[in-house]
Each structure stands twice: as structure tokens, then as C-alpha cells.
């Protein structure tokens, strides 16, 4: 195939440049430079009208004001809880799709898992609000069944936020889990079983090590999406949902304090990136492989 290689790469410098231009414009103008601008905004302080000096004041403000870093820690912690719960709930379903159900049944189940995600998050959240609010379907039903004496407000609790987050994240966990479980050879499980291993041992010694890349990929993606979520915490958690993205919005759009908002944005970005890198390091995977598989 030397001819093909020459035809593709030789004598086409201008073609290469032409193909590279959109990529450079996209990444340069919409990703790299804007984030540089965000960094500049966050590391300076206004000392007079249109006069700025380099400063860490916005980051100091973050650590001085308990409300800010409480929200940050809370967002991170709830994202970890939501990610773990999503993994636990998704794993059995992924197992059924990859190992137990056959042919059409597996395909249908997989399809059923995808359908809700073709519909915008706003619509799904509306559904949860109609189900859970005080005058909603679930409280009314519980009163009718005699389980509750009078309707209870199920919205605006941390648990509600978690339910909503798990719901919106589910598919992003199931897809990588299914693809990593499908490649697990059944013969290995049968062999372990024949040698006297029980279900728990098989899970611990064979299934989990094999599925580790899928588990990592799913957890990384779910954690990132949860951390950056806006609709679900603000609508299901109400005014005091205490989600960090909401704090960023408030600084940027409501208070118009771009320096502070940029610092918050950077902190969120650092947290999200740290978790991604830690997850990859922990399981020895490369970024390109994990993202490419999606």
C-alpha cells in the first residue's frame, strides 16, 4: 500500500492545512482561549474603575465564606453518593442484559433503558415533580392506601435530589458496564463454579476485575455529569438545593461578579479533572481509550 500512503500524505500540505483549520479554530477559540480568559479573570482583583491587579482574593473569599466551600464539599460528596448508588443499581441490570437475557430480550431491555434518555432532562424532571410534590401522585396514592394520614412534601429533600441524579445518570453507567461484561467469557465463570467458588467469590475474583475498565468509565462519566448538573438539583431541591453550579450561575449572571464566578468555575473544573485523573490512574487506563469507547 505504499502508493496509497503517498497519495494520502504526499504533496498535500495545503490540504492538510485546510483540514486542520477548523479543528484549530474550534479548540483555540472555543476551548483554550476562553479557559485562559477564565483563569485571568479568577486571578485578579479590581482596585479601581477598569483597573486590575493580580491577586488571589477570589480564592481567599471562597475559603473565608463558609457558605461557598460548604456548597462545594456538599456537591462533591453528594455526587460521590449518587455515583456509587448508580453503580450499585445499574450493575444487576447490566448483568441481566449482558449475561442472562438472550437475543431479542436483551436487545429490548437495552432499548428500554435508552428510551428515557432520548427525552430531555427537563421533561424527566417535570415527571418527578408531578410524582413527588405534596399535591402530586405519590403522596395522594399513599394517603389513599392509608399509609400516610395526610400528604407529605417529597420534593426539596436531599434524597429527592439523589433520586433525580441517579435517574438522569443511569444510562451512562449501563452502557460501559454492558460492553465490559459482554466481553467476559462465560467459561471462566463456569470454571470457577466447578472449582467450588460461590457467587460472591466469582463476583470478587473474576467479574469485578474483568469489568474494572467499564466500571471506571461509567463512574467517571456519571460523576462528571452529576457534578455539573443544574436542572435536577435546582428543581428537585428547591431554592436551597446548595449545588455548586447554581453558585456559579448566581455569581456570573445574577450578581455579575465575574471574577468570583470564574474562580468558582475553576475550582469545579479542578475537582472534576482531579477525579477523572485519579480514576484513570487507579485502574491504569488512558484518557483517550475511556472516552473513545463512549
Amino acid at each position: 500500500m505504499p502508493d496509497a500512503a503517498v497519495a494520502a500524505t504526499g504533496g498535500s500540505g495545503w490540504r492538510k492545512a485546510l483540514l486542520m483549520a477548523p479543528a484549530l479554530a474550534w479548540l483555540g477559540l472555543l476551548i483554550v482561549l476562553p479557559h485562559a480568559e477564565l483563569a485571568v479573570l479568577s486571578f485578579r482583583e479590581q482596585v479601581g474603575p477598569r483597573h486590575y491587579v493580580p491577586s488571589l482574593s477570589h480564592y481567599r473569599e471562597f475559603f473565608h465564606e463558609p457558605e461557598y466551600w460548604h456548597t462545594f464539599v456538599r456537591t462533591a460528596w453528594m455526587s460521590i453518593v449518587a455515583t456509587s448508588a448508580t453503580l450499585l443499581l445499574a450493575f444487576p441490570i447490566a448483568w441481566v442484559i449482558a449475561k442472562i437475557a438472550r437475543g431479542r430480550a436483551a436487545a429490548w431491555l437495552f432499548l428500554a433503558c435508552m428510551i428515557p434518555f432520548w427525552i430531555s432532562e427537563t421533561v424527566r424532571t417535570l415527571g418527578w415533580m408531578i410524582l413527588l410534590r405534596e399535591t402530586g401522585v405519590l403522596p395522594t396514592l399513599l394517603v389513599k392506601l392509608g399509609i400516610l394520614a395526610h400528604p407529605v412534601e417529597f420534593l426539596y429533600h436531599d434524597t429527592t435530589i439523589l433520586v433525580g441524579l441517579i435517574y438522569t445518570s443511569m444510562l451512562f453507567m449501563i452502557v460501559p458496564l454492558v460492553s465490559s461484561l459482554e466481553s467476559l467469557d462465560n467459561a471462566l465463570i463456569e470454571a470457577a463454579y466447578d472449582l467450588g467458588a460461590n457467587g460472591f467469590t466469582v463476583l470478587r475474583k473474576i467479574v469485578i476485575p474483568h469489568a474494572a475498565p467499564g466500571i471506571t468509565a461509567g463512574c467517571i462519566i456519571v460523576f462528571m455529569l452529576t457534578l455539573g448538573n443544574y436542572i435536577t438539583p435546582t428543581l428537585l431541591g428547591g431554592k436551597d438545593s446548595g449545588w455548586f453550579t447554581e453558585q456559579i450561575y448566581t455569581e456570573f449572571i445574577t450578581r455579575f461578579d465575574w471574577g468570583q464566578g470564574a474562580a468558582f468555575g475553576f475550582l469545579l473544573l479542578v475537582l472534576s479533572t482531579t477525579i477523572v485523573i485519579a480514576g484513570l490512574k487507579l485502574t491504569g487506563q488512558r484518557f483517550g481509550d475511556v472516552m473513545g469507547r463512549q
Binding site: L30, P34, L38, L227, I248, G261, L268, G288
Partner: peptide, 22 residues
């Protein structure tokens, strides 16, 4: 090719504010 994947791991809110600021 790695840089091309990066936008997927940046929270949407941050993509928004950085482009707004720039």
C-alpha cells in the same frame, strides 16, 4: 486528538461561562 476529547469532560456550565467571558 486528546485535546479534541477534552470538551466532553468540561462541565457544560463552565464551557458556557468561559465562552461568555471570552
Amino acid at each position: 486528538s486528546i485535546l479534541m476529547l477534552v470538551p466532553l469532560v468540561i462541565p457544560g456550565v463552565i464551557l458556557g461561562i468561559s465562552i461568555l467571558a471570552f
